[in-house]
Design a protein around this nucleic acid. Structure first.
Lengths: 191, 191
DNA sequence: CGCCTCAAGCTAAGACCATTAGCTTTAAAG
DNA sequence: CTTTAAAGCTAATGGTCTTAGCTTGAGGCG
């Protein structure tokens, strides 16, 4: 290994993500990460460019995890069931990690090929699920945006406590999903 | 008036909102506000509790403005047209002020009656628009959440540049709106 | 007209934080 | 055993929020 065999970039991101999950994205600070790593703050710069770079790595991790979660949810399903599974998975992920919402709304940023690739991977999963609906390319783009908007909007609002009391939020989501599925079916028939 | 007849809380919020609109919510700093106000940073504490308090005032302002915008958009319309008008207004507001997205996703926070009242006012507008659909109370709650999720999700993703190229984003939004209207109509008929 | 009050401003200071520069150590390679 | 380079360190700078306590000036009151 390396001297003192301590940190790695991965470990730093792990610790940072823990802080984000516990206290929110705004609470992330290099000083806190350094504390948890039993390391002086400047030492982190050996593993991470700076705070912005760490944030980017977190975004990347989150987007990749979401892509995985959606892929897993979609496998073995098709059509309406697959769309609902995607929506459920998106919401479930943000329920487990409410403070990661913003990481999923970041702009792709042309120059950052790695992050761009990751966000593209998410879109690819949705695209694949949409295949049996028989959309042309442009229609598929519209449909993907609708699915993403609905899922991200609902899950994001729920994650930030945006819904007053959480009594029948599940029910609300069922309604949203059925609207989505009906809408997609209808859009496939008569665009 | 008061000595030096300079600032007011309103003026501080105005300046702060300008900074948010220009550079994003994370870029808001008391030091920058003080600069623009030609005042030393500690002087701001005469008009604002602290940075968190200023952020809260910004959120309040944004939510109130959104409620106004939605109310204006809904007046004189009914049913499907009114729902589409709400969605358009929501999106238009976030297009004009992309960096205000998060202010519209904040939790009501029981203790803060003023902010709670403001967010409640937004919901009231949607509720009123939903009246002619004939939903019972629970259904109206679900429907309101769906509308909010769709509008906020789409507008928020668009505002943060979440959609790759902005070619036919208008078209995508048309699709989303028609899904929403169809979904609501359908939900009203057979819940 | 002159004085008093008190809100609005100020400076000074402390506690964090990010970041850079440059040094020290230590694990691994030869 | 020696070398080397990565991983850690301390010191220092500049920025931030925030509190404490002082100064000043505009408006009210005699």
């Amino acid at each position: 290994m390396s001297p003192r065999a301590g940190l790695t970039t991965e470990a730093v991101v792990d610790l940072a993500l823990k802080i984000v999950d516990e206290a929110g994205a705004e609470a992330l600070t290099l000083a806190k990460v350094a504390d948890r790593a039993n390391v002086a703050a400047p030492s982190l710069y050996k593993h991470v460019k700076n705070l912005a770079g760490l944030r980017r790595l977190i975004d990347l991790r989150v987007v990749q995890e979401m892509a995985d979660a959606l892929r897993t949810a979609a496998t073995g399903r098709e059509g309406a069931g697959a769309v609902e599974a995607l929506a459920d998975a998106y919401r479930a992920y943000l329920r487990r990690h409410p403070h990661r919402t913003n990481a999923l709304a970041t702009a792709p940023d042309e120059a950052d090929t790695e992050l761009s690739r990751a966000t593209h991977a998410v879109a690819e999963v949705v695209f694949a699920v949409l295949r049996p609906f028989g959309f042309d390319h442009v229609q598929a783009v519209h449909a993907t945006r609708c699915i993403r908007a609905a899922a991200h909007g609902f899950a994001g609002l729920e994650a930030s406590g945006g819904f007053g009391r959480p009594e029948d939020v599940d029910q609300s989501f069922e309604v949203l999903k059925s609207m989505l599925v009906q809408g997609l079916t209808n859009y496939a028939e008569k665009p």
